[in-house]
């Protein structure tokens, strides 16, 4: 199995939006490699004829009628906002 490299860790950290220090990158590289090696055990199983299970609940077609429910007020919606402006959630520049 592929062994996770520091470069992989950097790529994954960017995908996951986590700033890591160099030290953390080293530590995670080692730990993730160890965990993945253990988890990789499952690759030994022949599962060609086995369907995946993403839900144990054997439910289908859980739908709700197209009806309107009460909304939050703008004050409630923004009550936890780290930063707000003009009734919206303010964020730093995007690009």
């Amino acid at each position: 199995m592929t062994v996770i490299s520091k470069k992989d860790v950097e790529h994954v950290a960017l995908l996951a939006r986590l700033a890591l220090t160099d030290e953390e990158k080293e530590t995670f590289t080692g730990q993730l490699a160890q965990i993945l090696e253990h988890a990789g055990k499952i690759q030994a199983l022949d599962t060609t004829a086995v369907p995946p299970t993403s839900h144990v609940a054997s439910l289908t077609n859980v739908l709700r009628p197209d009806e309107i429910r009460p909304c939050l007020t703008s004050e409630e919606a923004l009550s936890n906002a780290p930063k707000q402006e003009d009734g919206g959630f303010a964020v730093p520049k995007i690009v």
């Binding site: 709700r64 009806e67 309107i68 429910r69 009460p70 909304c71 007020t73 703008s74 009734g87 919206g88």
Partner: peptide, 15 residues
């Protein structure tokens, strides 16, 4: 169950 709206006051059609 929030309404589908257009042009409402920001963050009032939310839950």
């Amino acid at each position: 169950g929030c309404p589908v709206t257009f042009g409402e006051v920001p963050n009032t059609a939310v839950c």
